[in-house]
Nucleic acid binder design. Structure first.
Lengths: 337, 337
DNA sequence: AAGCCGTAGTTATACGTAAAACTTCCAGCG
DNA sequence: CGCTGGAAGTTTTACGTATAACTACGGCTT
């Protein structure tokens, strides 16, 4: 009989079933074939059920030296994108008996010097978005198996990388706008130092360089609607050779451009075409609906977890970029004039 | 010298500092006053530093019988609201040496029968949103300390509750619209069985019952822009006594109403006033900006964690509702006619 | 009949930490 | 001078699990 108020242990189950603790461990761990008779095994299972036995994870983790838990490090969860990444990662993890702990970037959460206060040694591996930069050094110090999301394949020596084909998406957006006759571009860039944004800038510039008569201006903005509004309003005020198309680093920035356009009396898409990246719910909430690049966040998370599992099992995390799709909606139209 | 490839243990630190393992535990656990000399303590700290020692959490948890980790159960993270709740909870938790594990509602994540596959016994307590209903029974079975967010104070026997003053918010919204002359109301309700939504319906109905000539119609919709659009379009098509004000259960639903209004050729706010609840970024992205009730998600999370800490320490989690604010923007105007 | 093997278990141990209980030494007091 | 008491440690144990190593026994082969 287990002492009241305490959770039953495998020893309590053993006592109830009239066997040794080892037998309980074997049966419940599904390692009993040829070691325990079917009748005894059933008695053990029955005892565990009636006592409501749950193995103590701390003890198991200590014994096994691993936790079957991985950490997902993401920037602030201000959009549903990383929620989707989490969902995908957690689904694949669950299929393999793993759990995923979500670690949104500090930003006032705790002692920033130790982003892993709650996790520390209790992890088997880490999946980290390149946007959560400051956490990386700490991870490296712990030399845990690491998968980087949307990060420079060259720069992340040692770590596996899983990337979205952002370059391809930007190419599609640019070609779409060029096809509509646009030549004067504004790139509204996120003011975050992260590879995934560098790719956007690089690809857009590269694409436009090959087009005679094309011009590209760049404005930086914090990733928020208000921030984008201010930045875009300033950039679009230069009347004479104002841009006719604004390529934004993400959908939130695009929503800010809508507001700036409204203030300036510019109609979207007649006088100004706007594009985003992400395809958030926001993209269809605003009017006109936003032409954007759809990123499959859940697939991204699934692939990330898949790669980490591969690393953990000593397999090769063969990385190929995840394709993205241009979704043409009402925010882009033929260039004016 | 610790064997290569393995993390150093407290015994390794002890060896390096020339003391016993117990001394290391005392020093690093800050329980050494009067038990270990300052000089020895410093030697231990130095050794721990140079070896890069991190205590093994599994061992500590096993020894102490607690994990200093709590679970936050929330519905899907499709808006930034629960991200804010997490941030607030995690901040307070960190100040008390606790960690918070986020558990977004299953919805295809894992074996739904066991929502705590990754957590199980490794928890000291749970904070759960009433919107994540199915998880509750499982929690109850584990009889962990529990704090419910936005849940019926009567219904949640035994558990502490922390609530937003949603009723007050609905009252403010209704009074605002009544003051603008509106009498025909449509309530666009979330089709989720949860106390926080029941309160909205009850309070709105109660308020309007006391107003002569006021009418209230209700339409249900899934919490998404598309869902709200379809539901609102149907409800607003009844031409003769169509509602002039739509009170929505949250901002996403309100965004759907905008789209329905656009399809029906109704101008917001001239012909139709619309209100939301939450004050998400979305509220200022749409045009006109949305009149809504601002909920302080971070404060909500802080209070939730505070209440749980109180329960864990045997104190009284004195619960008072968290005030909310009506934010009047461009989506509400005088009733037409 | 001796040896062997498969079945059905048990006993013993290790994981790393925290802390209770013990030891040793020395200073100070009566 | 013997005794007390505090300082500064050490030794030991327990937490609950998984598993390696061992035992006991009956049936079968040779």
């Amino acid at each position: 009989m287990p002492r009241a108020g305490t959770r039953p242990t495998s020893r309590d189950v053993a006592r109830a079933a009239g066997v040794s603790q080892a037998a309980v461990s074997l049966v419940l761990g599904d390692k009993w074939r040829g070691r325990v008779s079917e009748a005894t095994a059933e008695r053990v299972r029955e005892a565990a059920r009636t006592l409501g036995y749950r193995p103590n994870l701390a003890a198991r983790n200590l014994r096994l030296g691993r936790t079957r838990t991985v950490l997902l490090v993401v920037p602030a969860l201000t959009t549903e994108f990383f929620a989707g990444v989490y969902t995908g990662a957690a689904r694949v993890a669950a299929q393999h008996g793993f759990g995923v702990v979500l670690y949104p970037s500090p930003e006032g959460i705790g002692p920033a010097r130790d982003p892993f206060a709650s996790a520390q040694s209790a992890l088997d591996g880490v999946i980290a978005s390149s946007m959560a930069a400051e956490a990386l050094t700490a991870i490296r110090g712990d030399q845990l198996p690491l998968v980087m999301l949307d990060s420079d394949p060259e720069g992340s020596v040692g770590a596996a990388t899983v990337n979205l084909d952002i370059a391809g998406g930007v190419r599609q957006v640019t070609d779409h706008l060029l096809g509509l006759g646009h030549r004067r571009f504004l790139h509204l860039a996120a003011d975050v130092a992260s590879w995934t944004f560098e790719v956007r800038a690089r690809e857009l510039a590269a694409r436009l360089r090959s087009v005679p008569g094309a011009s590209l201006r760049t404005a930086q903005a914090p990733i928020s609607i208000r921030g984008a509004e201010a930045s875009a309003e300033a950039a679009l005020s230069l009347a004479p050779d104002r841009a006719t198309a604004v390529v934004c680093d993400d959908d939130q920035l695009a929503a800010g451009v809508y507001k700036a356009a409204r203030r300036l009396g510019l109609r979207v898409p007649e006088e100004l075409s706007v594009t985003g990246i992400d395809d958030l719910a926001l993209a269809t909430a605003i009017d006109p609906e936003l032409t954007t690049v759809r990123l499959d966040a859940e697939l991204f998370g699934e692939r990330g977890m898949g790669a980490l599992l591969a690393v953990l099992e000593g397999r090769d995390p063969h990385a190929s970029d995840i394709p993205v799709d241009l979704v043409v909606r009402g925010s882009t139209a033929r260039a004016p004039g």
